[in-house]
């Protein structure tokens, strides 16, 4: 564990999370959420949880984002908040 790297990643994660819920365009929000998941799995890999990181990368950042994009494309992109 390298504290500095850790902190930077955590910061990114935090920024992405806040961005994901505050962006009005849903497609962007979903993409940012994908980035959030990606940073999260980097963080986990760095913390020694490589298996969790892999799963997160493939399942959550991968499939999850795909599902989101599919859903958003079937509905509306704009959000009021």
């Amino acid at each position: 564990m390298i504290a500095a790297f850790d902190l930077v990643l955590l910061l990114f994660v935090l920024i992405c999370a806040i961005a994901a819920i505050s962006v009005k365009d849903l497609l962007s929000a979903v993409i940012i959420l994908g980035a959030y998941s990606f940073f999260m799995c980097l963080l986990w890999a760095e913390m020694g949880a490589v298996d969790v990181a892999f799963t997160e990368a493939s399942v959550s950042a991968g499939i999850g984002t795909v599902l989101f994009i599919a859903a958003v494309s079937k509905t509306k992109r704009r959000s009021k908040d």
């Binding site: 849903l26 959550s60 999850g64 859903a71 908040d81």
Partner: peptide, 12 residues
């Protein structure tokens, strides 16, 4: 209020 946002919330 947006439902997709709520789901993003769940995810986070």
């Amino acid at each position: 209020k947006n439902l997709v946002k709520k789901i993003i919330g769940i995810n986070i």
